[in-house]
């Protein structure tokens, strides 16, 4: 029998992967459409646009990392499942929220910034570095969210 606390912890793991993953899927999709348009007219731009397209993908990885950390800490991996109290379970769930929603929104916004970058290098291929920097700026907030989620998860007493 799973304790209620454990159920909340698993919901947290799922939410981290789910929302950050949705964000990345949308973000990468946005850039992909913009890039396809550019490459249709100018196939040489494939390499640099691919680089930009990959950027909003990181949030999904961060979500996955957080989810993995949760199921490791509650002992789902390894077989020694910890019997979490309700308080512990809820703490784990909320510890997952920064990357779940920070990841969701930052991936979409990063997708938009990267799509604009794709348009920019359509006109100025030599400025690909700047286009990447603009998109990477958004990454800061995904990293901050990930950091908060991970640190909290490490130190929640279970």
């Amino acid at each position: 029998m799973l304790s209620t606390g454990l159920v909340y912890a698993i919901i947290g793991a799922a939410a981290a992967v789910l929302f950050a993953g949705i964000g990345s899927a949308i973000g990468v999709g946005l850039v992909g459409q913009a890039a396809a348009g550019v490459v249709a007219e100018d196939p040489d731009k494939f390499g640099s646009t691919l680089l930009l397209q990959a950027l909003p993908g990181t949030q999904g990885i961060y979500g996955m990392l957080t989810g993995f950390l949760i199921i490791w800490r509650i002992g789902l991996i390894g077989g020694n499942v910890i019997d979490l109290t309700l308080q512990q379970g809820l703490s784990v769930l909320f510890a997952a929220m920064p990357i779940a929603f920070g990841g969701l929104l930052s991936a979409i916004m990063q997708g938009r910034a990267a799509a604009s970058g794709v348009y920019m290098i359509a006109k100025r291929p030599e400025e690909v570095g700047k286009a990447i920097v603009y998109a990477v700026m958004v990454e800061t907030y995904a990293v901050l969210a990930l950091l908060m989620s991970i640190i909290t998860l490490f130190y929640i007493p279970l």
């Binding site: 999709g29 459409q33 396809a36 348009g37 249709a40 007219e41 731009k45 348009y119 006109k123």
Partner: peptide, 16 residues
């Protein structure tokens, strides 16, 4: 708003 992404991508090159 993502409806126009592909077309605008092509337009960006065509503008050059």
């Amino acid at each position: 708003s993502d409806r126009y992404l592909y077309a605008v991508g092509r337009i960006s090159v065509m503008e050059t």
